[in-house]
């Protein structure tokens, strides 16, 4: 049996085994194992073409190892667990805030309309036009709400894809985490920098109320 035939049969055997075990979806780590096992079968005298194939396979194995490390180093689990949920919460908060603001604007506009009813002629007409313009402009809440809903759906799609990455690279991610852990939080006695103080508006529930701020300020007196 020639080396070429032997390699072909080994590849077919490994592929059949993988299909039997995992179907058509195979983890990158297992592909790497297949390449490694094929390389291990290449013993004895090698022809020039065998050697070329060997080098190609070795380069492929190395490429896969590097890619695994690069993807794992991106910490897709953190993107899934922290960044995407936070982004979705912030977007939901935007929709809620614009809805509340729009209703406040319309409350005020309806009060203006009530006053308008007591006026005559030109003044009433001017107020009518102004309030109509306000109602028209309030339509922004509906449009921005729909756009934000589309973004949230896109985030959900990204989350699903990242979930696939986390599943495929789970063990690699854990290895990277173990070798270079990210500090969870600043030590309690660490100095707070100006950058630490820039976090933007807080989400409902996380925010400090004015009453709590007043109490905090009063505690300095």
């Amino acid at each position: 049996m020639s080396t070429d035939n032997h390699v072909d049969q080994e590849i077919k055997k490994e592929l059949a085994l993988l299909r039997q075990t995992h179907g058509d979806v195979v983890k990158v780590s297992e592909i790497s194992a297949v390449v490694a096992s094929i390389m291990a079968t290449m013993k004895g005298d090698l022809t020039a073409s065998d050697l070329e194939l060997y080098n190609e396979l070795e380069a492929l194995a190395s490429y896969i190892r590097d890619a695994k490390m690069d993807i794992a180093a991106l910490r897709p689990d953190e993107v899934r667990d922290q960044y995407i949920p936070t982004a979705a919460d912030e977007l939901d908060a935007i929709v809620q805030a614009t809805e509340i603001a729009t209703n406040s604007i319309m409350d005020a506009t309806e009060e203006i309309e009530a006053v308008m009813a007591t006026l005559d002629g030109d003044q009433a007409e001017k107020l009518m036009n102004a309030t109509t313009n306000i109602y028209e402009a309030c339509g922004f809440q509906d449009i921005t709400g729909q756009r934000i809903t589309k973004v949230v759906k896109a985030l959900k799609d990204i989350e699903d894809k990242i979930e696939g990455l986390v599943t495929a690279f789970g063990s690699e991610i854990e290895k990277i985490k173990a070798s270079s852990p990210v500090p969870d939080a600043k030590p309690e006695n660490a100095e707070i920098t100006d950058a630490d103080l820039l976090d933007g508006p807080q989400l409902e529930g996380d925010a400090t109320s004015q009453a709590e701020i007043d109490a905090l300020l009063a505690s300095f007196d």
Binding site: E136, C138, Q141
Partner: peptide, 17 residues
């Protein structure tokens, strides 16, 4: 008919006008 309550309110006000 609209799933955005603010849009219902806008429509109601414009129709009232």
């Amino acid at each position: 008919v609209d799933d955005y309550k603010t849009m219902l309110r806008i429509l109601r006000n414009l129709l009232r006008q």
